[in-house]
Design a protein around this nucleic acid. Structure first.
Length: 236
DNA sequence: GCGACAG
DNA sequence: ATCTTGTCGC
């Protein structure tokens, strides 16, 4: 497991310094009231043509997986996609969506990493600290490559650690037998054990957690609506 | 020097 | 992320 180098673009210096300040507030152990019954999922969609984005947050009942509440926020895109600074792009819209919720979740599973990030400040950690809420990072691809693919057993719940600078920053986790794993890490105020257990609980049937799938569906429906509006304005 | 690089 | 045609399988 090679500890790859991580380059910081001097252009974004101020944001890297901000990440260092945020890491000081990071909590990597369970700190919440049990039981967790309401879990949130997030996703963001983009329309580069209109330079607008939609952040969505869906709240599910952890036992039934039923949707309890949902909210979204549309706004201008204000930050480019830069690997390592992803959270600065998505947090503003997600924070605004969170504030519109009637029923707040007790924890959020994010579409992106937590501390499985070169500076331990992926989207999940940044959002968790911003909202002061427990969060789990659950990405579709690892940012900390490479990982030991051959060591990951085929059965559901199999894991293999993601190592970075000699530390276990997260795990590759198979949520379904023989299916490509997801990459789970501590976001904020949860242990890795809790992060894995809740990710599995919320992924009874598909590769991705139901929270992520629900947020994904909402954001795609909203995006279609946004594109129709953008198109009709261009006709005028 | 080039590549790799969450969504 | 978004774009984008077909294709394989339950």
């Amino acid at each position: 497991m090679r500890a790859s180098s991580y380059k910081e673009d001097p252009v974004y210096e101020v944001y890297y310094r901000q990440q260092e300040a945020l890491v000081a507030q990071l909590i990597t152990e369970d700190q919440f009231e049990s039981p967790i019954e309401l879990i949130g999922g997030v996703d963001v969609a983009y329309d580069e043509t209109s330079n607008r984005m939609i952040g969505a947050l869906v709240v599910l009942d952890a036992a039934s997986l039923a949707i309890v509440d949902q909210a979204y926020h549309e706004m201008e895109i204000t930050f480019p996609y830069v690997p390592g600074l992803f959270s600065f792009r998505e947090v503003p819209a997600l924070k605004a969506a969170f504030q519109k919720l009637t029923t707040k979740p007790q924890l959020i599973i994010c579409d992106g990493h937590g501390i499985a990030h070169p500076k331990k400040m992926g989207l999940a950690s940044h959002l968790g600290i911003t909202l002061d809420l427990p969060t789990i990072g659950c990405g579709k691809r690892s940012l900390l490559t490479p990982w030991d693919k051959a060591a990951l057993a085929m059965e559901r719940a199999a894991t293999v650690p993601l190592i970075w600078e000699g530390e276990i920053r997260g795990v590759a986790l198979r949520t379904q037998p023989a299916i490509k794993p997801v990459f789970v890490s501590i976001g904020h105020r949860v242990s890795i054990e809790t992060a894995i257990a809740l990710t599995l609980k919320m992924s009874p049937q598909y590769r991705l957690p139901e929270t992520t799938r629900a947020a994904d569906q909402l954001v795609n429906a909203l995006r279609e609506k946004l594109l129709r509006i953008t198109a009709s304005e261009e006709e005028e």
